[in-house]
Measured scan of single mutants.
Amino acid sequence: PPDDERKKAEKAARSGNEEKAREILERLGYSEDEARELAKRLR
């Protein structure tokens, strides 16, 4: 489910793995720019 994926992205971002967070968010349908912004904010 998307919620689980989003949680994974948050966890990745918090542990400093912004790249992985961005990949997950892009898979969820965010654009590259949106995903980058979100990954930064989740950190």
Rank of each mutant, 00 (worst) to 15 (best):
E26G: 07
Y30E: 00
I24W: 03
L38T: 07
P2C: 15
E5M: 13
S31K: 06
Y30D: 00
D33A: 14
A12H: 10
E19M: 13
K7N: 11
K11Y: 03
K7M: 12
E34L: 07
A9I: 06
R14G: 04
R41Y: 03
E5A: 10
R27T: 08
S15Q: 13
R22V: 15
D33L: 08
E10D: 05
P1E: 14
R41I: 09
E32Y: 04
S15T: 11
D4V: 13
S15D: 14
R6T: 07
L38I: 15
D33G: 05
D4S: 14
K8R: 12
I24T: 01
P2H: 14
R22Q: 08
R41W: 03
A9M: 04
G29M: 00
A9Q: 03
S31R: 02
L28Q: 02
N17T: 05
L25A: 01
R43Q: 11
A9E: 06
D4K: 12
R22I: 14
L28V: 01
S31P: 08
I24H: 05
R14W: 04
R22S: 04
R36Q: 08
D33M: 08
E37W: 06
A21I: 12
D33R: 05
K40I: 05
R43H: 15
N17Q: 12
E26P: 00
S15K: 08
D3V: 10
D33E: 13
Y30G: 02
I24S: 02
E10G: 08
E10L: 09
N17I: 05
S15N: 13
A9K: 03
K20H: 09
K40L: 02
A35Q: 02
G29Y: 00
K8V: 11
A12E: 12
A21M: 09
K7R: 13
I24G: 00
L38A: 05
P1K: 14
E18C: 15
D3Y: 11
S15F: 06
L42C: 08
D33T: 10
E37C: 08
G16H: 07
E34Y: 06
K40E: 15
R22L: 07
R6G: 05
E37G: 04
R27I: 07
R6K: 10
S15H: 11
A39C: 10
L25S: 00
K7V: 12
N17E: 09
L42N: 01
E34K: 03
E32H: 06
R43G: 13
A13H: 04
E19H: 09
S31M: 03
K7G: 08
L28I: 08
